[in-house]
């Protein structure tokens, strides 16, 4: 059994690059926020900055990892060429632009020699 997802290969390739760029961008963002110094602020302000910064550094970092993970997933799918099952095909389709949300997923029987 194999599964075919009806999304052009160029779209898959392009969207992988976009997820990769998103990860790079967000990596730069959380690092800048993490490094932002509180020198020159009163202790009260510095404490508030720290309290704000910590969860958002974590959140943006997590989003960066998520984006990188999506990019890597597409790489894995590309490497397999054939998508093994329906669930994987739906997963890949959810990473494509919305316009491809209805891309056909078809199952076919692979007849091994």
């Amino acid at each position: 059994m194999a599964v075919t997802l009806a999304v052009p290969y160029a779209v898959v390739l392009g969207i992988k690059g976009k997820w990769d760029e998103a990860a790079d961008g967000l990596d730069g963002n959380w690092r800048r926020l993490h490094k932002a110094s509180t020198d020159g602020f009163s202790p009260e302000v510095a404490a508030a900055v720290e309290a704000f910064r910590e969860p958002w550094v974590d959140e943006i970092k997590a989003a960066a990892q998520q984006a990188q993970g999506y990019s890597d997933e597409i790489t894995v799918f590309q490497g397999r060429v054939l998508i093994a099952d329906l669930e994987q095909a739906e997963r890949l389709r959810s990473l494509m632009p919305w316009v491809h949300r209805d891309a056909a997923i078809t199952e076919s029987v692979v007849v091994w020699p």
Partner: peptide, 25 residues
């Protein structure tokens, strides 16, 4: 003034830069 305007400017610049990047993505 324990909190300095120059420092506030730098902090604001950093947060703006982060915001620009997040908005881009």
């Amino acid at each position: 003034m324990e909190s300095k305007p120059g420092r506030a400017q730098t902090f604001a610049t950093n947060v703006r830069a982060v915001t620009v990047g997040v908005k881009d993505v």
